[in-house]
Structures are given as C-alpha cells and as structure tokens.
C-alpha cells in the first residue's frame, strides 16, 4: 500500500516500531546533523545506513576519487563512477539522494586538515570516522574534544576491525587509547594485508548503530569498550577501556592541548596507504582554472578534466588535481619527488 503523503515518518515505519527508537527517536534523527569524515569503505557503509535511517542533515567529506579497486568494498560506487572520474563525496551524495530525497546531504571534496576541521564539524551533533589514517583521526579527536562533540572511531584491516565510541568527558579519547600513531613501516597497510568488504561492513554498521543511539539520546545503551572483531577466525572481544579516563596523562582530553589542531603535528604532504601515490596539499585561495591548466599541460602529456578534477599523465606519473590545488600524484612514494613534480607541472 502506498504511503499516505501526509505522514513523513511512514518511510521509517519499520525502525519506528523498534521500541527503543520510536517516533521520538525518529524525530531526533530527522533533526540531527552529522559530519562524516571519509567516504571510502567505512564511509560508504556509514552514509548508506544514516541516509536510509533518516539522519536529517548529512555532510560527507572525502579527498579522493573512485578507482576500480574500490568497488570490491565501497558500496555506494559503481563502474560508471570510475569512468566519470567522480570524487567519492560527489558520487556518494548522488546515490544517497536517489535513496532518500527528503534529507539534506552535502558533499565536500577536500582534505581534512587543521585549517578546516573546526568549520567542517562545528555545526554537527556528531562526527563519524570513515577515514583510513591516524593523522585525520587525531585531528577529529582534537576537534571533538575541544568542541565537546561525540565521535565514533572505526578502523579495519584484513579480516579484523576495531571501534570505540568517544564522548568527551565521559569516555577516554583516541589519544588516551593510542598515544601516537604507528610510524610507516611498523604496521601492515591496505596493500600488504588487504581488506575484506564484510569486515568493513561489520565495523561500519557498529559505528552506525552507535550514531543512532547518540543522536536519539540512548546514552545508556552506548558501547563503553574497545570492540575488536575478526570475522575470519570468529573472535569478538570487548576490551575494557573506561579505566583509562583520567588515569592516562592525556595531552588532549586531560590537558586540553590540541597539538593536531594547532597544526604542529603531521605532514601536509602524505603518502597514500598502499597506493604508490603521494598527496600534495597546496591549498589555494582561488579555485584552479582547469581550462587554463589543461591548455598549459597538453603539450607535455595526456590531459582531461571535468568540473571536479583534472587528470594529467606524463613520464610514468599520473596527476589527479582538484580545484582547491590539492593533487594526488601516482607513480611515486617519495614525498620530495612528488613536491618537485607538483612544482614542475602545476606550479607552486
């Protein structure tokens, strides 16, 4: 039977009937604002759950574009998106609008860094982690603790994943749990260890249900542990972390020193996990003029562009350049080399 047009909750009826959510919970979801940081494997599953559940305002941030090897696990993308050279945030939002046209969804194609993170999360009730690196997670953690906003951490590799719900002042924060990120080479990457789609889906689904609880005030039902799951060997563990709060001499949540927000930590040019690629972050005050730039590059290699990105292949390197000046340079893991290439072909 078709839904009566006067009842905006009808499309959510099956979750409204779940007693712990109910109509009040649904109304809270519809009135809520969520910033999703990263829209890859974890992020697409999170965005899918939240848009369908009726989170009223969803901001989806991602710095990357879609490649064929993403399709194995990044559930909102398809082959046409790869052919169209779409940024992940843009492609995700197009799919989500066709799934739920009644909510507000905003794509943001940018690299989250210390200069923009407070603006990107400032109006959100909740921040969700769909990132693939600790640098961005520490930035999110600093911003969340500073602004007093809850966030949910998730990470996956191979067949295993972890998630933890962070409520400022009530739970330990990410830096209480992991004081510093492992240096490159000390832990496996997506390239060396691989990752299974179902492992990502399990962790992202746990993050999503925590999001629904946080947005509807079901705080008593929140996860207070570090959850670790390995879907290959069937281990499900709940590690007790609550005792870390106050016990750890945490620079972030105890001393309120926001070292990542201040920009003193991390690099602005980074190698991308398992990709033989380097991201050069060179934000410009004015958007790049792609027409002009492609004219300049045409004699030097193969160039094509759309509204979202410019692709340029030369000397065994492939540049993907975004309007804000940021570029991903494929064909090297060497940061200095990447900076040189950027200066040579894009200009500083």
């Amino acid at each position: 039977m078709p839904a009566p047009p006067h009842d905006p909750l009808e499309r959510y009826s099956r979750q409204v009937r779940f007693p712990s959510l109910g109509q009040a919970g649904q109304r809270a979801l519809l009135a809520s604002k969520v910033t999703l940081c990263g829209c890859g494997a974890l992020g697409t599953v999170l965005a899918n759950h939240l848009a369908r559940a009726g989170v009223g305002n969803l901001r989806i941030i991602d710095r990357d574009f879609i490649e064929t090897h993403n399709l194995q696990r990044q559930i909102l993308f398809n082959e046409q998106d790869v052919r169209d050279n779409l940024p992940k945030a843009e492609a995700a939002v197009r799919k989500l609008r066709s799934i739920n046209s009644t909510i507000q969804i905003e794509p943001v194609v940018t690299d989250i860094d210390h200069t923009n993170v407070l603006d990107l999360v400032g109006d959100a009730d909740l921040i969700l982690d769909g990132t693939d690196n600790f640098e961005t997670r520490y930035l999110i953690n600093d911003a969340a603790i500073k602004l007093g906003k809850p966030w949910v951490y998730g990470g996956v590799i191979g067949s295993e994943g972890q998630t933890m719900t962070i409520v400022p002042g009530k739970t330990p924060c990410l830096r209480c749990l992991i004081e510093t990120a492992p240096p490159p080479g000390m832990t496996p990457t997506c390239e060396t260890a691989g990752v299974l789609g179902p492992a990502v889906a399990v962790i992202a689904s746990l993050e999503a249900v925590e999001a629904i609880k946080l947005l509807t005030g079901a705080n008593d039902a929140l996860n207070r542990d570090l959850i670790m799951i390995d879907i290959w060997d069937w281990t499900f563990r709940q590690l007790k972390v609550a005792g870390l709060l106050g016990k750890i001499d945490c620079p972030c949540c105890k001393h309120r020193r926001f070292e990542w927000l201040e920009g003193g930590m991390g690099s602005h040019t980074t190698t991308l996990c398992g990709r033989n690629a380097v991201q050069v972050a060179a934000r410009r005050p004015e958007p790049l003029n792609f027409a002009e730039l492609s004219q300049r590059l045409e004699p030097l290699g193969e160039v094509r562009h759309n509204a979202f990105m410019l692709r340029f292949a030369t000397e065994g390197y492939e540049f993907t350049i975004f309007p804000d000046g940021r570029a991903i340079i494929k064909g090297t893991n060497d940061i200095a080399k990447a900076r040189t290439l950027y200066a040579q072909f894009v200009g500083s």
Binding site: G38, G40, A41, L42, G43, D129, G130, T131, D132, N133, F134, G154, G155, V156, I157, E160, G161, Q162, I178, A181, P182, T187, T189, C190, A193, V195, V200, I203, L226, M228, R237, L239, C273
Partner: peptide
C-alpha cells in the same frame, strides 16, 4: 596477555 595493535585502515 593480549597485544593490541592500532588499526588504521578504513
């Protein structure tokens, strides 16, 4: 005794 590494991917 469990050794718990940081998990970065996603």
């Amino acid at each position: 005794v469990s050794i718990i590494p940081a998990v970065a991917g996603g």
